[in-house]
Design a protein around this nucleic acid. Structure first.
Length: 446
RNA sequence: GUGAUUGUAGCUCAGUUGGUUAGAGCGCUGGUUUGUGGUUCCAGAGGCCGCGGGUUCGAAUCCCGUCUUUCACCCCA
């Protein structure tokens, strides 16, 4: 049998895991600095928790887990005969793989509401699964890094989360544009154009603007049954890039004005500290996930062709689904796999993160190999990462191994070194080799 | 879910109109070298040509199916 892994999944080699951890560590340290606390939730959730939260398209992309035991005894025979997959699946699967981290978080908050003091700020770095067709930057298994706050309406939190985006990408060296909009502004546009009833159709159409252009959006809107006059109004509003210019158009839309107010409040907080990356208002930013209600964010890399590498926003009533009303939340997410791909493409990973092993010991024969092991223990006791080639093999072979491991120093031990106590240390980058007593050698390695 | 695309050695890829024993580079193993790698030279191992079926005297090559890869759409990180 030829080994293989499921489509859309990947193995990670040591160097890849090291790079990925570098991304995680950078994100995590910023999360912690801003006061967010870690939680973890199971890979599987009950399907009742997941279904209906991501729209019809999202439900199709949920991985379902087959029930255990004699699950066919309780299966829906009628649905099977009628080839009604959705209904039949319900009768043989109660659990599904987590699709994102936000819905499990909402579930967690509701289940633990008595133990949580609000506002509750949490971060979570775990894999999620989607039964999507893989393509560029799209996998069936990938990590998300989320930070969310529940239990406060303050726009300060939106500003803080935008600062987190700015700081993380600055630390990673990725130049990005943080786009911000507000769902209420989009609704205001729909109202101003007189198509409030087609709000969802309108947003999904204009979300594609940068892909299909203004004309494409117009076509899309026509296809979705929006009148030409309304389309012209929408187009006009989409070309506006400043909040002040948008305001007069929202005279008759209370919601639209509220959206502008919120973004103004956001800026009052955010503008107190100069941002490293560009942050811009983008009235065409819509975002798919249906639960967003207020500010929405999206992050795009400036120097690479890639979908969004982060997104988030305010959701007023996510926990309402689970019976806890009136708790507002806001959160952001980093797409670690895509950030990885962008950083790889732009060669932004620091050179030295891969070097973890400081020195390799090599020995010539059995006595010196045994002696070398005692030296190894002393080096490790000094807190230095070290390794001894497991047998006294030929020099060339051991040196080749040292090369493959990209180890900076090799310590060579034979009968001379054993008798004199002076150990030969070779700098693999320069090729220089000198002899040191053990204590001296430890100093050199620190 | 729709439409394309890909699969040959561990890796990157050649392989002509269907023709007898399927190749290269890199890597790997051994030697050149009984105490020195990243640059020599020599030798060797390693392939159900993704899988299943069909056409044919004969299939890596043509046809069908299936899985997989990559890409676009839908949707999204």
């Amino acid at each position: 049998m030829k080994p293989s892994i499921p489509k859309g999944t990947r193995d990670f080699s040591p160097s890849q895991v090291i790079k990925r951890n570098y991304i995680f560590d950078t994100i995590r340290s910023v999360f912690i600095k801003y006061g967010y606390q870690p939680i973890e939730t199971p890979a599987m959730e009950n399907l009742s928790t997941l279904t209906g939260k991501y729209g019809d398209e999202g439900d199709k992309l949920l991985f379902k887990v087959l029930n255990n035991g004699a699950y066919l005894n309780k299966s829906d025979a009628t649905a099977f005969v009628e080839k009604d997959s959705a209904k039949f699946t319900q009768s043989v699967s109660k659990r599904g793989m987590r699709y994102d981290l936000t819905v499990p978080f909402a579930r967690y908050v509701v289940m633990n509401q008595n133990d949580i003091s609000f506002p509750f700020k949490r971060y979570q770095i775990q894999p999620v699964w989607r039964a999507d067709r893989p393509q560029k930057g799209r996998y069936q298994e990938f990590y998300q890094c989320d930070a969310d706050v529940v239990g406060s309406n303050s726009l300060m939190l939106e500003a803080e989360l935008a600062q987190i985006y700015d700081e993380v990408f600055a630390n990673l060296g990725v130049s990005v544009t943080i786009k911000i909009n507000n769902r209420k502004i989009l609704f205001g546009m729909a109202e101003a154009a007189g198509v409030a009833d087609k709000f969802i159709d309108m947003t999904t159409a204009i979300d594609k603007l940068d892909k299909i252009g203004m004309e494409g959006v117009a076509n899309e809107l026509t296809n979705r049954g929006i009148a030409t006059a309304a389309i012209e109004k929408i187009q006009k509003m989409l070309s506006i890039t400043s909040l002040a210019a948008l305001k007069p158009l929202f005279e008759n839309s209370e919601t639209g004005l509220k959206g502008i107010e919120e973004l103004e409040a956001f800026h009052q907080y955010f503008d107190t500290k100069p941002a490293i990356n560009k942050i811009e208002f983008d009235s065409t930013l819509a975002r798919g996930l249906s639960y967003y209600t207020g500010c929405i964010f999206e992050v795009k890399a400036n120097d690479a062709v890639m979908g969004s590498i982060g997104g988030g926003g305010r959701y007023d009533d996510l926990t309402g689904n689970f019976g806890l009303k009136g708790v507002s939340g806001v959160g952001i997410s980093f797409g670690a796999a895509r950030i990885f791909d962008v950083m790889e493409e732009l060669k932004l990973f620091p050179e030295n993160i891969a070097v973890q092993l400081k020195c390799l010991l090599v020995a010539f024969d059995k006595p010196s190999h045994e002696y070398a092991f005692s030296v190894l223990n002393k080096i490790r006791s000094a807190g230095i990462s070290a390794e001894l080639y497991p047998e006294p093999a030929k020099m060339g072979k051991q040196m080749k191994y040292a090369n493959a491991r990209a180890v900076p120093f090799v310590i060579i031990i034979g009968s001379d070194e054993m008798n004199s106590g002076n150990l030969a240390m070779k700098n693999m980058a320069t090729g220089e080799q000198e002899k040191y007593a053990l204590l001296e050698l430890l100093e050199k390695l620190k």
